[in-house]
């Protein structure tokens, strides 16, 4: 597995963490943290798409 593939796993995990963090924040009444978590998740997904396009030629192995 190349760094590209591992980075994809990392980006996916980070997106899930951002969404979980957001859920935790809303459940605990921390609205600002909750919104930040959702924004972070969106930004990470956008970055993930950008990085996949950018490294299209590099192998996953």
């Amino acid at each position: 597995m190349s760094l590209k593939a591992f980075h994809l796993i990392f980006v996916t995990s980070l997106t899930l963490l951002s969404l979980s963090f957001s859920g935790w924040a809303f459940a605990n009444g921390k609205i600002l943290f909750g919104i930040s978590g959702i924004v972070a998740a969106i930004l990470v997904v956008i970055y993930g798409i950008y990085f996949l396009k950018k490294l299209k030629k590099i192998s996953y192995l």
């Binding site: 760094l3 591992f6 980075h7 796993i9 990392f10 963490l17 979980s20 963090f21 935790w24």
Partner: peptide
């Protein structure tokens, strides 16, 4: 650089699990 990056990503991934478990 790739090998050091793989290690670094692993360390970052561990933190992604540590953070919710310990802080949240």
């Amino acid at each position: 650089i790739e090998v050091s990056g793989l290690f670094w990503h692993f360390v970052d991934l561990v933190w992604i699990f540590l953070f919710p478990v310990l802080y949240l």
